[in-house]
């Protein structure tokens, strides 16, 4: 369970990106986060993975208070989360395979199973044939899918996706959403920030709407 209580985030330049947010996401839930550009969607998602720290309020994940986490404990929190970054954050000095391999290296996975896991993740996003390609040689949509493969390869219990379909055509966007739904069906908590109105047509899932750093009803 992800719990926000009176959470505010003011950036060092004084800009208040989030203002008094109260929010509960149940374990195994799938939630969409929407709002205008600059509304604070990315900021909210970053707070969950402790990529940003809140200025005030408490954030707890499975009962653990993230705001008071010691720096040494933060990596282990991040390993429980798969994060699809809005700006991808791929490594341009290594091929697609090695990019997806990185989370497994970081969490000390047994070397025998890693290759098959990486290929399974690449296969899910339709990039298996491009495993040797460098990110510079991939299209915008392919990079986005590579980022998704990297976010799911270590089978996180929480999947956070910041504009995961921003560069994808309708067909791929649909496939990606099907993928996220199937993750959700095996118990993964999924949070997706998007402007994409077509994704929001799906009425099954809760939609949270941010405006000027506040949650609208």
């Amino acid at each position: 369970m992800i719990l926000f209580k009176n959470v505010s985030k003011r950036y060092p330049d004084g800009y208040v990106a989030l203002n008094n947010i109260d929010l509960t996401v149940q374990t195994g839930e799938m939630v969409f986060l929407t709002g205008h550009s600059g509304a604070g969607k990315s900021t909210l998602l970053k707070l969950i993975a402790a990529l940003e720290r809140p200025t005030s309020g408490t954030i707890s994940i499975s009962g653990q208070n993230i705001a008071q986490l010691k720096p040494a404990a933060i990596p282990y929190l991040r390993r429980k989360i798969g994060f699809v970054f809005q700006d991808h954050k791929l490594l341009f000095d290594r091929n697609a395979f090695d990019n997806v391999l990185l989370p497994l290296q970081i969490s000390n996975f047994d070397s025998k199973t890693v290759a098959s896991r990486v290929r399974a993740a690449l296969d899910k996003v339709g990039l298996l044939r491009k495993e040797k390609s460098m990110p510079i040689a991939l299209s915008g949509g392919e990079r986005q899918r590579l980022c998704i493969a990297r976010a799911v390869v270590h089978r996180p219990s929480i999947l956070i996706a910041d504009e995961p379909t921003g560069n994808l055509d309708v067909e791929y966007a649909h496939d990606i959403m099907t993928m996220f739904t199937s993750f959700n069906q095996v118990g993964v908590t999924v949070l997706i920030a998007t402007h994409d109105a077509s994704l929001l047509e799906d009425k099954q899932h809760r939609i949270l709407s941010l405006r000027q750093g506040k949650l609208a009803a």
Binding site: L91, D93, I106
Partner: peptide
């Protein structure tokens, strides 16, 4: 720099 930053983002410990 990029490698270090991204590794930290996805949960690398300092010793890693």
């Amino acid at each position: 720099r990029d490698e270090i930053e991204i590794s930290k983002l996805i949960g690398a410990t300092d010793s890693f």
